[in-house]
C-alpha cells in the first residue's frame, strides 16, 4: 500500500487498463452503496418518529446521496458515461452495492401502508456508517489522488452522522425494554447482511495491489472493533462474527427489492433519458 506510485488524475488512470478496471469497480461499489442507502433514507422523509428528527435525518440522506454523486462523477470522468445515466439506467445486475443497503425499511410501500422499522433504521445507518468510516479512512492513503481528496472531505460529514446515530442508538437501547428489543432486532437483521460489506468482488486483489484500498479482511477487522465498542457503549450483547452471506452484492447478485428500487428511481428519467429534466 505504502510505496505505490500515486495517480493524480482521471487521464492518468486511463493509461493503465488494469489499474483503471480495479478503480472503476471500487468506485461503483462506493457510489452504489451510498446511493441506494440514501434512497432508503429518502423513503423515510415525512414518516419519522418525531418532526424534528424527520428534518435532521433528511440531511443525513442528502449528505449520503451527495457522496454518491461525487463517486458517480468520478466514474463519469473515467469515461463511464453520464452520472445521471449511471445512477438511473443500469440494470440491477450491474449494481455493485452490498445487500445491506437495498433491504427495505420494513413492509409496505412508502406511499401506501409503510410499516417502517425505526429500530432497523438506526442500527443500519449506524453500523453502515461505521463501515463507511473504515473504508474512507483507508482511502485517505489511496494511490488515486482524487479519491484521497474526496475521502478527506467526506469524513467530517460522516462523523456528524455517526454522532447522530450513536446518540439515538444509545437512547433507545437504554431507554426502555421495548427500545432495547427493537434495537437488538435491528442489530440481528444488520448482522445477517454484514458479511457482504467486506467482500470487494473479483477485482479485490488488484485494488490492494495497486494501493487503491486495503483488503476487505483488514477493513472487516477494524469495523468489528468499532462495532464492538458501539454495542458495548449501549450495553448490548455481542452477536459474534457475521457469517458469509448467500448473495454477493459486489458480484451483481441482488434481491428483487433492488429491482423495485431502481424502477422507482428511474421512473421519470426513463420516459426520455435524452430530454432535459
Amino acid at each position: 500500500m505504502a510505496n505505490q506510485h500515486s495517480i493524480t488524475s482521471a487521464d492518468e488512470a486511463k493509461q493503465h487498463p488494469e489499474y483503471l478496471a480495479a478503480l472503476k469497480e471500487l468506485l461503483y461499489q462506493m457510489a452504489d452503496d451510498d446511493f441506494i442507502l440514501a434512497y432508503r433514507g429518502s423513503e423515510w422523509l415525512g414518516l419519522g418518529p418525531h418532526i424534528e428528527e424527520d428534518v435532521a435525518f433528511s440531511s443525513i440522506s442528502q449528505d449520503t446521496m451527495g457522496h454518491a454523486v461525487m463517486f458517480y462523477e468520478m466514474l463519469e470522468e473515467l469515461g463511464e458515461g453520464k452520472a445521471d445515466d449511471l445512477a438511473q439506467l443500469r440494470e440491477a445486475s450491474a449494481f455493485r452495492n452490498a445487500i445491506l443497503v437495498e433491504r427495505p425499511n420494513g413492509t409496505g410501500h412508502y406511499k401506501e401502508n409503510p410499516h417502517f422499522d425505526w429500530g432497523y433504521a438506526v442500527t443500519r445507518f449506524y453500523l453502515y456508517g461505521l463501515f463507511k468510516q473504515t473504508r474512507l479512512e483507508s482511502l485517505v492513503h489511496s494511490s488515486y489522488q482524487p479519491l484521497t481528496l474526496a475521502a478527506r472531505k467526506m469524513l467530517p460529514e460522516l462523523g456528524y452522522h455517526l454522532y447522530h446515530w450513536q446518540v439515538w442508538m444509545n437512547q433507545l437501547a437504554v431507554g426502555s425494554q421495548e427500545g432495547y428489543d427493537r434495537i437488538m432486532q435491528g442489530v440481528e437483521k444488520v448482522w445477517q447482511d454484514a458479511g457482504d460489506l467486506f467482500v470487494f468482488g473479483s477485482k479485490e486483489v488488484d485494488m490492494v495491489k495497486f494501493g487503491l484500498i486495503e483488503s476487505g479482511q483488514t477493513l472487516a477487522q477494524r469495523w468489528l472493533e468499532k462495532a464492538k465498542q458501539a454495542l458495548d457503549a449501549c450495553v448490548l450483547p455481542w452477536p459474534g462474527m457475521p457469517q458469509t452471506t448467500e448473495l454477493s452484492g459486489r458480484a451483481g447478485q441482488h434481491t428483487p427489492d433492488l429491482t423495485e428500487v431502481l424502477n422507482t428511481l428511474s421512473e421519470v428519467y426513463r420516459i426520455d433519458p435524452a430530454a432535459n429534466w
Partner: peptide
Amino acid sequence: NHEVAMTMAREN
C-alpha cells in the same frame, strides 16, 4: 433531553 436535542438542533 439535552443529548437528543443536540442531535437535531443544527438541521432544524
